[in-house]
Amino acid sequence: MSPKGVPEAVIAAVSSEEHPIAPFLRMDRMPHIWCSTCGIGTAVKALVAAFEKLETDLDKVSIVSGIGCTGRVAGYVRLDSFHTTHGRPIPFATGLKLANSELTVIVFSGDGDLSAIGGNHFIHAARRNMDLKVICVNNFIYGMTGGQAAPTTPLTAVTSTTPYGNAEPPFNLCHLAAACGANYVARWTALHVRRLTKAFAEILVKPGFCFVEVITPCSTLYARKNRLGTGLDIMKYYHDNTVIEHGAEPADTDIVFGGPIICGKFVDRDRPTWLEYQDQHLGEVLGDKYYRGKVLQGAGER
């Protein structure tokens, strides 16, 4: 089994040893469904690395996905995990978080799921500054259904529903999230594994609506239809064309076909979360009559 000329000692077959990520994943479901060179697995690895770094109590972390390639993440991560309907992970996560505010609730889904069918939920959760950690894998295309155009598909890019090139301006998701009020907004690519891990570690402990966009290769569909080469070629493209600009004005970070990709942490602010604002406002207006206020105060006194 081991490739020629390599000492047996440094090569392990799948049966004999397990990857250190195993305790974090549902290994009985491996191999996953993602294509060769797809970046979703790398994004999952970065999330796990952030858990390790923070020594997160994983019993108190829930993950919610929608539908699509990235929607499958919930099924592979060994957390309380919810694979919901198309576009709906954010409202599902909203209910989950508000029913038990001790939980850290991660939404891990794709660009089509979160910004097309789920776009309305996305903007409103950001507006409310709902305490959700939203990770959006953006590969500019609908993968699961066979390569159709997404709201993120750059102008002129070819997809199976824009065979002559896309003629619709796309969303800049970071700009959208920032404009709606997100507490934290960052963009990285699948190549920036360390910075991505750091961003995930930051959002896991930051209250409010936190948004990380992960630009990933889709070699099966996006790269093939646009003749961009292999997944590795796309990673090289990220290497050569990424401009890291922390604090960049989100409006100036549009992604243009064949252009540079501006990455970095664009927004990091501290608006009160939805629940914090409720507790503060209702506590002020209702005083002793505000039940959650009494409970919270009681917890403080103890």
Partner: peptide
């Protein structure tokens, strides 16, 4: 395949970037 395994300094980059959880 590891052709220069003695060069490995345990930087973990291969493990981090592998989308398949197939190298560590």
């Amino acid at each position: 395949k590891a052709v220069r395994p003695e060069n490995c300094v345990n930087c973990d980059l291969c493990e981090m970037i592998c989308p398949e959880f197939a190298i560590y």
